[in-house]
Deep mutational scan, measured.
Amino acid sequence: SPEVQIAILTEQINNLNEHLRVHKKDHHSRRGLLKMVGKRRRLLAYLRNKDVARYREIVEKLG
């Protein structure tokens, strides 16, 4: 489901952010981070168009 995919991506994004705080010059990982953020944004847009209630619920849960 989109909610699960968004939750997994959010966790991976948070982990990668911590990694990049330590390894500032790791541009390869930064590119992966940007791809993940874009994918999460697309999934959220899809969910917002399909079911606003589910969209609001996941945004509330994940912050």
Results as ranks from 00 to 15, higher is better:
1 S>F: 15
1 S>E: 09
1 S>C: 14
1 S>D: 12
1 S>M: 07
1 S>Y: 15
1 S>K: 08
1 S>T: 09
2 P>K: 05
2 P>R: 04
2 P>A: 14
3 E>S: 04
4 V>F: 11
4 V>H: 12
4 V>L: 11
5 Q>V: 10
6 I>D: 01
6 I>W: 03
6 I>S: 00
6 I>V: 03
7 A>K: 07
7 A>V: 08
8 I>V: 07
9 L>T: 02
9 L>V: 02
9 L>A: 00
9 L>G: 00
9 L>E: 01
10 T>A: 02
10 T>E: 03
10 T>Y: 03
10 T>H: 02
11 E>G: 05
11 E>M: 10
11 E>T: 08
12 Q>S: 06
13 I>G: 01
14 N>W: 08
14 N>H: 08
14 N>Y: 07
15 N>M: 12
15 N>C: 14
16 L>K: 02
16 L>T: 03
16 L>Y: 05
16 L>C: 07
17 N>D: 05
17 N>A: 14
17 N>F: 15
17 N>L: 15
18 E>D: 08
18 E>K: 10
18 E>I: 07
18 E>N: 10
19 H>P: 01
19 H>C: 07
19 H>L: 07
19 H>V: 05
19 H>E: 04
20 L>S: 01
20 L>V: 04
21 R>Q: 09
21 R>F: 04
21 R>D: 03
21 R>P: 01
21 R>L: 07
22 V>W: 10
22 V>A: 10
22 V>I: 12
23 H>G: 04
24 K>C: 12
24 K>M: 07
24 K>N: 08
24 K>P: 15
25 K>V: 05
26 D>H: 09
26 D>S: 04
26 D>W: 03
26 D>G: 04
26 D>I: 03
26 D>C: 06
26 D>K: 07
27 H>T: 10
27 H>K: 11
27 H>L: 10
27 H>F: 14
28 H>A: 14
28 H>Q: 12
28 H>P: 06
28 H>T: 11
29 S>G: 12
29 S>P: 03
29 S>R: 07
29 S>V: 13
30 R>S: 04
30 R>C: 13
30 R>P: 02
31 R>C: 11
31 R>A: 11
31 R>F: 09
32 G>S: 14
32 G>P: 04
32 G>F: 14
32 G>L: 15
32 G>R: 15
32 G>V: 15
33 L>Y: 08
33 L>D: 00
33 L>P: 00
33 L>K: 02
33 L>F: 04
34 L>I: 10
34 L>Q: 09
34 L>C: 14
35 K>M: 11
35 K>S: 10
35 K>D: 09
35 K>Y: 11
35 K>E: 13
35 K>T: 08
35 K>V: 12
36 M>R: 06
36 M>T: 03
36 M>E: 02
36 M>K: 06
36 M>S: 04
37 V>F: 06
37 V>W: 07
38 G>K: 14
38 G>W: 14
38 G>Q: 13
38 G>N: 14
39 K>N: 05
39 K>T: 10
39 K>M: 12
39 K>Y: 10
39 K>H: 08
39 K>V: 10
40 R>A: 04
40 R>T: 02
40 R>L: 13
40 R>W: 05
40 R>I: 15
41 R>G: 09
41 R>T: 07
41 R>Q: 09
41 R>V: 06
42 R>I: 10
42 R>Y: 08
42 R>W: 07
42 R>P: 00
42 R>V: 09
42 R>S: 07
43 L>D: 00
43 L>S: 00
43 L>G: 01
43 L>C: 04
44 L>K: 00
44 L>H: 00
44 L>S: 00
45 A>Y: 05
45 A>R: 08
45 A>M: 11
46 Y>I: 13
46 Y>Q: 12
46 Y>H: 11
46 Y>V: 11
46 Y>A: 12
46 Y>N: 11
46 Y>F: 09
47 L>D: 00
47 L>Y: 01
47 L>I: 09
47 L>R: 00
47 L>V: 06
48 R>E: 05
48 R>M: 09
48 R>I: 05
48 R>W: 10
48 R>T: 01
49 N>Y: 09
50 K>G: 03
50 K>Q: 14
50 K>Y: 14
50 K>E: 13
50 K>I: 15
51 D>V: 02
51 D>S: 04
51 D>F: 03
51 D>M: 03
51 D>R: 01
52 V>Y: 15
52 V>C: 12
52 V>F: 14
52 V>P: 15
52 V>A: 11
52 V>G: 09
53 A>T: 10
53 A>I: 11
53 A>D: 12
53 A>M: 10
53 A>Q: 13
53 A>Y: 08
53 A>N: 12
54 R>A: 13
54 R>H: 06
54 R>W: 04
54 R>Y: 04
54 R>F: 04
55 Y>A: 02
55 Y>N: 02
55 Y>R: 00
56 R>F: 10
56 R>I: 13
56 R>A: 07
56 R>E: 11
57 E>N: 07
57 E>K: 07
58 I>T: 04
58 I>F: 05
58 I>A: 04
58 I>G: 00
59 V>C: 11
59 V>G: 02
59 V>F: 05
59 V>Q: 03
59 V>T: 06
60 E>I: 11
60 E>G: 09
60 E>L: 10
61 K>N: 08
62 L>D: 04
62 L>C: 08
62 L>T: 03
62 L>Q: 03
62 L>N: 02
62 L>P: 02
63 G>H: 13
63 G>I: 15
